[in-house]
Design a protein around this nucleic acid. Sequence first.
RNA 1: GGUCUCGUAGCUCAGCUGGAUAGAGCAACAGCCUUCUAAGCUGUGGGUCGUGGGUUCGAAUCCCGCCGGGAUCACCA
Length: 597
Amino acid sequence: MGIEQQIQTSVAEAIQNLYGEPIAATSIQVTVTRKDQTGDYTVVVFPLLKVSKKNPEQTGTDLGNFLIEKLPLIASFEVIKGFLNLTLAQSYWATQLNLAAADESYGFTKATETSPMVMIEYSSPNTNKPLHLGHIRNNLLGFSLSRLVEANGNRVVKTNIVNDRGIHICKSMLAWKKWGEGITPESSGIKGDHLVGDFYVRFDKEYKAEQKQLMADGMSKEEAELASPLMAEAREMLLLWEAGDQEVTSIWKMMNQWVYAGFDITYKALGVDFDKIYYESETYSTGKEQVLEGLQKGVFYQRDDQSIWVDLTNDGLDEKLLLRSDGTSVYMTQDIGTAKMRFNDFPIDKMVYVVGNEQNYHFQVLSLVLDKLGFEWGKELVHFSYGMVELPEGKMKSREGTVVDADELVADMVNTAREMSRELGKLEGYSEEEAEAVYQTIALGALKYFMLKVDPKKNMTFNPKESIDFNGNTGPFIQYTYARIRSIMRKAADSQVVIPDQISLTAKLEYKEVQLLRMVEQFPVVVKEAGDAYSPAIIANFIYDLAKEYNQFYHELPIMFEEDADKRAIRLLISRVTGSIIKNGMWILGINVPERM
RNA sequence: GGUCUCGUAGCUCAGCUGGAUAGAGCAACAGCCUUCUAAGCUGUGGGUCGUGGGUUCGAAUCCCGCCGGGAUCACCA
């Protein structure tokens, strides 16, 4: 039983004894005491006045006196207005420290063979463009979420659905055939995904020029769009692809391979990975089968033009297309097929989709449609919806060239980290290779933490010019704290100091030490809560608070390696535990911590 | 227009299952490197928590209205 529950139970007991009224223990409000007040835990007595029929001070004092008798771990109490502040015994904190020190994976639950299986879909790129800033938020959230769910004792399958079919890919293919046949990533020296993206842009440019010409010849905008020979060619190519045309298929395969090779590099740089990748080209036909099955079962209906729809008006939504009149599939069809295949492949208990909030409606519909098709998990699917990444000038627009490329951004970050590190004279004595690895870790730490510390559901602003800070509430600050802790451990070992596994229960702890232990105590709860709410941001902000607290602790405590063995033992143990929590917390976020920086 | 969502310091963000005097960082200013890493620490200034009501002993937090930003309502994905 946690300390808060113990207090709740005892307060409930106190009320029963003192005022003769039964009260639910869970209704007692126990919070962590404010920093500026003395005490560790606070019982809010206001709601209890109805029962006590006394004023707040008297009620608080009554309860305090009872608790101090009942719970030996409470050392003293103080009543201020309607708040009963309890100070815990030193031995309680010493026990906490010993417990924490004994647990390597502090706060984590290990999954077993029978643990629930959660599949998390994230990334989900199109194959016609390289990854950009928006994808970075998706990838980092998805990866971190996987770690968080895993830390809460679930088996996790990370999955990626690649959108490798459709008109947009045909545009790139057509542009390549027309203006770049023979060019490869090898021959051009351009990363595969960027090369294909360049052809996509090229198509758009040529298409625009064509439109301009047609309009100059007297067509209206609408007429020009319909008459476009380029677009007609792209559509024809799509039909050829659907028909399995050999030439088109082989170009498609080749260009997709280029893209995948490029994506792999980006994914590796970001430190994310997947257990299973699905391709829409392989799932859409399953989707069609499912829709037709639904039509037979009578949960969907067909219109006169042969298109298939689902009626969701009873669920407060509208009617939604599932299959076009020509029998080809839409987005929804593909997601149905993909879901079906996934559940055939894995014994999934829960499905989580990490997809931007512009698709909130889509997932509402998907959930209902899957439910109608008889998938038990349909209703329970989770759309982990996150907000857009905006630039200081506003939204990213590919037309205006304001899209921030993922590869460029990472490279910029590494350069900044390298420059700053050299300027500050860090990492002297490291080999070039070792130093580069650290720059990489710091740069990614900065980028990842920046993206993850913000509440996922909110839109966020990202300023690439100012790049990302290395000071303040940032990844590097936390990494730095960890590096210092590791340094302390090395120094201790060098001077033959043995770090104890435990401290005595009578050990005297200073104010700062208790502050830190209070945070240590909270970590498992924070992980659990963030796990329920699926929010890496909660972990991120907690780890920052811990690191900040530790840095102050580091500066305020006198150096006592030689003077006082007990103090030294406590300090080293706290450092070790704090380091362990920082490492675990950063692990959840998907951020590495360097031994030195 | 319907639905959803956001609005907290000059800027970027915490805090939101109701609790005490609303917190960090950046930016500005003033200190601290013979003491375990100054990517650090300490201090100063900076707020009608968009706005108006309601519920409550108590509201940044819950409910309603309004204002402002965003998303979505495609035989696009």
